[in-house]
């Protein structure tokens, strides 16, 4: 009997020891919601190569300038959202709230913000055609046809195949991707996702939904250093009037080489959260900072400051 009691005691002790152990890790997953006002899209303007407006006041325009298509449901107009955790966010350094910076070490650059962590809601992804480098963001499209329609009807620059022919069918686009990217399923490509609400907790897929006057997306900043009273801050890189994005460099990224086609596939800059002031430009929307006092509480961060150069 004594032997059994001793065994039971060891068993209980070992369980108790496991449950009480605190590893002391300072990094946390910080989860919340980003919100971008509807106005970010409604105020967006696009022009064609001649400078003629093709989109304004929330509608695409025909040749006579008449409104054609309401663009408030066109998520492709939302660029990547960059979100980081910083020691503090201050006014006065830029025309918008900006994280505090360390010393200036290079006369060509501002000081580093030394972020504690960060993530994006959507990122640039190479979408199988050279024309689409730095123009397609993950979490904005559910299928290939949606991309083709967006570039044809909203940006009004139809997607062209390497031979110059317009790509009009999603199936053609899909086959081109499978051929050139050496994949056999859509699951292997990040820029389309037929199941955007799939549960992948503790993270979220970078898809926005329209809720009232805001585009809303769930987000997790993974493995961020948590310091009490740290501030979350970021911006959404909105397209320029010619549908280009300041945070992406088409001459970087993986190299593409196939027959007569040779180019770089494009990539976002690696130091966006370190030097955000370099990349925020006309038309971007900057967040109102949020102070984090409890890493387990969900935050809501609003991108409500439009930046005008």
């Amino acid at each position: 009997m004594t032997k059994y009691l001793t065994l039971l005691s060891f068993f209980g002790l070992s369980f108790g020891g496991c449950a009480a152990f605190d590893e002391g890790i300072l990094e946390r997953d910080i989860t919340g919601v980003v919100r971008i006002p509807l106005e970010a899209l409604e105020s967006l303007k696009l022009i064609d190569s001649d400078g003629t407006p093709i989109m304004e006041d929330g509608f695409t325009l025909d040749e006579e300038g008449n409104p054609v298509l309401n663009i408030t449901g066109q998520m492709g107009l939302l660029g990547p959202v960059y979100l980081g955790g910083f020691p503090s966010v201050v006014d006065g350094d830029y025309a918008y709230p900006h994280p505090e910076m360390g010393p200036i070490l290079d006369s060509d650059r501002p000081g580093d913000t030394y972020p504690y962590g960060g993530t994006t809601v959507g990122r640039f992804d190479y979408a199988c055609y050279e024309q689409l480098r730095c123009k397609v963001v993950t979490g904005r499209y559910t299928d290939y046809q949606e991309i083709l329609d967006f570039f044809s009807d909203v940006v009004q620059e139809p997607v062209l195949a390497p031979d110059g022919a317009e790509v009009t069918a999603g199936a053609t686009y899909q086959e081109h991707c499978y051929t050139t990217e050496y994949v056999t399923s859509d699951d292997e490509l990040s820029f389309v996702d037929g199941d955007p609400q799939e549960d992948v907790l503790p993270y979220f897929k970078p898809y926005f939904r329209l809720e009232g006057d805001f585009y809303v997306a769930d987000v997790t900043i993974p493995h961020s250093l948590y310091v009490e009273d740290m501030e979350l801050w970021g911006w959404v890189d909105m397209p320029s009037v010619r549908y280009a994005f300041a945070s992406c460099n088409p001459e970087e990224g993986s190299s593409y080489y196939r027959y007569t086609e040779q180019f770089m596939e494009g990539s976002s800059y690696p130091d966006l959260l370190n030097y955000p002031g370099i990349y925020i430009d006309q038309g971007d929307w900057v967040a109102e900072p949020v102070t984090i006092t409890d890493p387990d509480a969900e935050f809501t961060i609003d991108f409500i400051h439009p930046h005008e150069d």
């Binding site: 020691p87 503090s88 504690y116």
Partner: peptide, 14 residues
């Protein structure tokens, strides 16, 4: 070494 406003220390290579 740079110390931010929350007291976190970052090593800087000058």
């Amino acid at each position: 070494f740079y110390t931010d406003s929350k007291g976190e220390v970052v090593e800087i290579q000058y």
